[in-house]
Simulated assay, not measured.
Amino acid sequence: MTSSRPRATRTFVSLTGPAGNIGDALIRRGTLEWAQGTSDELIAYVGEAPDVWLKQLGVPDGTRVLRGKKSVAKWLWLLATSRHRPVLVLEAGEVPLHKGNGLREIVFLAETIIVRLKRGVVVRPPRGIRGATQPSLWFHSLAARASQIALWRDAASARLAGATTVVPDIGFADVRGGQPWGERHELLVSLRGARPMPNAAWIDAVKTSAQEQGLAIRTVVQVREDEERSRELADALGGTFEPWEADAVTQEATLCERYDGAKLVISDRMHVLVLAALGGAVPVELVPEPTAKITEAFAAVGLQGISADATTADMPAFLAAQIERADEVRERMTAAAAQLVEIEAAMRETIRKARA
């Protein structure tokens, strides 16, 4: 006799990242949400991440968690021995393709080929390419073309991969209500610690903008390594410094509360501005010679002109103009979240059809 009982299905999801970076947690959580419920068994590779990382992401009980480089062989074995059309969900975010990344991209290509040979589904959530070099870019582009779903969070990355599908970064998925605009009384600042301290003209422009709008200045920490820079900025701006004093889960909740009560958030970190905009604050990148990363990611959701070069811009005028864009920001965030819901639904339908 033969059993009519269906064979168990597996979804493999990559969720690496440091617990000290709230932005990385945001997009990895989005990746996990896409993977959940697509198979009977969920297998997550988390690299060297600590237990608090699993809590940050909300990894559900029953997930088979693989840690460390030694577990990569186990990951590949489980993938190769999956019997019934496995699903592979690679993590959203930035993909470094510098020299030396070629071997890693060959492994990802091999994973993609294994899944496709098993008539499974490969999902690449919205990603951005950084530091593209050959042959890493060639291997990466080949794997993306071999995937049923390969999405890009900015047009430049799509062009590099020979693709055209540009969608919102997965971090834009969850719009928060935030406080009514008239009840917001803060201007928040969070800058990278690795960059030089802003000059006197920048400090004066931010202080002037806060005074004219009747806003208190607060510096916050979304990436642990930026904490000392936030302390220095608070001293220079005459603002309140809020250190990272809790676990990562509590820190994220505190940050969202701050963003929900702010009118303007200035940062050179993309996901600081994403989290801020989701809570209704107006996001602003104001640094010397800003990179295109933030500009392109927000352009993908239809929000243009949030970045300015501090070496050439009329900073007070720029900040005054940005604070008038609250309604536009809310509209764009709502539309981006709705688009991501549609994309996720289409992904799940692709998996369903593959297993029908």
Results as ranks from 00 to 15, higher is better:
144 A>T: 11
120 G>C: 12
132 A>H: 05
158 A>F: 02
170 I>S: 11
144 A>Q: 14
144 A>C: 15
152 W>R: 10
133 T>D: 09
163 A>C: 08
174 D>G: 08
162 G>L: 09
169 D>N: 07
132 A>T: 06
143 A>R: 12
150 A>W: 06
176 R>F: 09
142 L>W: 08
149 I>Q: 15
120 G>L: 14
124 R>G: 07
148 Q>C: 04
183 E>S: 13
159 R>V: 05
131 G>A: 02
122 V>W: 12
177 G>L: 06
150 A>M: 01
138 W>S: 11
162 G>H: 05
175 V>F: 10
122 V>T: 12
143 A>M: 13
159 R>L: 08
146 A>K: 15
130 R>M: 11
177 G>P: 02
158 A>S: 03
180 P>Y: 11
160 L>S: 07
152 W>P: 09
154 D>A: 04
153 R>Y: 06
168 P>S: 07
172 F>V: 03
181 W>G: 04
135 P>S: 05
158 A>K: 06
159 R>C: 03
136 S>T: 07
129 I>Q: 00
123 V>L: 12
124 R>P: 13
137 L>S: 10
159 R>I: 05
147 S>F: 10
156 A>V: 13
134 Q>D: 13
139 F>Q: 02
148 Q>V: 01
165 T>N: 11
165 T>G: 00
158 A>W: 01
168 P>Y: 05
183 E>Y: 09
136 S>H: 02
174 D>M: 10
140 H>S: 12
136 S>A: 15
136 S>M: 00
134 Q>W: 11
169 D>S: 04
143 A>W: 01
182 G>R: 09
132 A>P: 08
137 L>G: 02
136 S>G: 05
174 D>A: 14
181 W>V: 00
125 P>E: 01
181 W>I: 00
138 W>G: 00
145 R>W: 15
154 D>G: 07
155 A>W: 06
140 H>P: 07
178 G>S: 10
123 V>A: 03
145 R>E: 13
164 T>C: 07
120 G>R: 08
130 R>T: 10
137 L>V: 10
171 G>V: 02
183 E>P: 04
133 T>S: 15
128 G>Q: 03
168 P>R: 06
151 L>D: 08
132 A>V: 01
171 G>K: 02
140 H>W: 14
139 F>V: 08
135 P>A: 01
154 D>T: 05
123 V>T: 07
174 D>S: 13
162 G>Y: 04
165 T>F: 08
166 V>R: 00
141 S>W: 01
127 R>I: 09
152 W>H: 13
155 A>Y: 00
139 F>E: 08
162 G>S: 05
164 T>W: 11
120 G>M: 14
157 S>P: 02
143 A>G: 14
172 F>Q: 02
140 H>N: 14
179 Q>H: 13
166 V>D: 09
130 R>Y: 12
135 P>M: 03
172 F>G: 00
127 R>G: 07
173 A>D: 04
146 A>V: 15
149 I>N: 15
151 L>Y: 12
137 L>Q: 10
131 G>R: 06
177 G>E: 11
127 R>W: 04
126 P>W: 03
147 S>I: 15
171 G>R: 02
166 V>G: 05
120 G>W: 13
162 G>W: 11
167 V>C: 01
125 P>S: 03
143 A>N: 08
